[in-house]
Design a protein around this nucleic acid. Sequence first.
DNA 1: CTTCGTTTTTACAGATTTTTTACATTTATT
DNA 2: AATAAATGTAAAAAATCTGTAAAAACGAAG
Lengths: 225, 225
Amino acid sequence: MKILIAEDDVYIREGLTELLELEGYQCLVACDGEEALQVYVEKKPDFVLLDIMMPKLNGYEVCKRIRHQDSSIPVIFVSAKSEEIDRVLGLELGADDYIMKPFGNREVIARIRAVTRRCMTTQDTGKVDGFDMEDIRVSPNQLRATRGDQVFELSLRDVNILRCLYQQKGNVVSRDELFNQCWGRDYMANSRTLDQHISKLRKLIEKDPKLPRIIRTVHGVGYRF
Amino acid sequence: MKILIAEDDVYIREGLTELLELEGYQCLVACDGEEALQVYVEKKPDFVLLDIMMPKLNGYEVCKRIRHQDSSIPVIFVSAKSEEIDRVLGLELGADDYIMKPFGNREVIARIRAVTRRCMTTQDTGKVDGFDMEDIRVSPNQLRATRGDQVFELSLRDVNILRCLYQQKGNVVSRDELFNQCWGRDYMANSRTLDQHISKLRKLIEKDPKLPRIIRTVHGVGYRF
DNA sequence: CTTCGTTTTTACAGATTTTTTACATTTATT
DNA sequence: AATAAATGTAAAAAATCTGTAAAAACGAAG
């Protein structure tokens, strides 16, 4: 298991590296945000430890960009300042956990194990995360849908739309509601944005996009699963 | 969906608010136990996130009192101390889940979703949407009516007309009133619009459209269920 | 700064629903 | 029964809504 340690303080960085290598992890290191991103792209670690205050690019930003490539990779933030930590919650970063400096060895190990376990179980069972719609399975964390061994890559918005419809299966979900849930703002009367996404989704996941079985149109109101 | 966030720490409270609003929830906040109860009574949220240690009234107590009013509302406890969490399990509060601080965004979202889903299904089985008219059942949320296993697709307007008649069952509803309720404007003397809709509805849901049993005409005034 | 990929807007063609028209039928009144 | 007023309904017309290609705007990555 490869862990990326992004931390500018050399002592902490080396301390973490030594600790984690003793635990059997393979460590990749980065001294600033840009390097972290670069290493991430090149080496594709399985886990990321991110300091928040780093030169060039802060941890929030790094997390955002990493998440953009893989929405399910576990990320733990590391910081000395509790305000920084609290901000993590406020930003839409999807952090899995965080560790306050100064931290003890056991704490680091424990948290990494806990997060790993959480992520593992959701992947292993494949049941905790994801839901079925007709004959396809949607896995929000992987941004994917599958029918048998066919795999469809979905965007975050696609997943949200599907989830929205799924959560109210049987009921009609109005355009307004879909827009609110998936875009977080009001639906503008003559916008074809939603239709465009539905169209794209149908082309992707419906066997016959002309006769949709999963996403049905309810004229004058919205859509229904 | 309205979520009540009861949490005294301003950072965590605002972080949660921002996170959940991005997810499409409407957030209500409270800084202490008493406020939480007050907001609960006034706004009737659909979901409660409760910190355990709060000024004035602790989370256990708040939960107990909320449960007294609504024994089915989902409640998730939030706490940093595992002993506190353990007590939740010991007290018979009927908590649906709990979250340990520090927590990651995805954990919060995942738990809320899981609990919501659990409660949804219990609602699905328990709570049925709609009303009965004679031998058919009307489900406004699905825009459907059913007689046995026959399903009739209805438009929003159809449902409104039926609801209008249902709400005053036994009484005659004048054309004027129906038009006002369902179209939001005045009925124009020589418009056949309303009749047309009634006609369509009767063809759809009446066993014998010529001898209507659900929607009856009251000559010179309007219709009655 | 440029390029590539994605999202949003524009524009328009169909599709679907609602309203009107026109006339048949029913009901109340004389 | 004759008449006038109100209702029922098929079919045409009008209004509204949806689907989608293509252009424009946006954002991330190099």
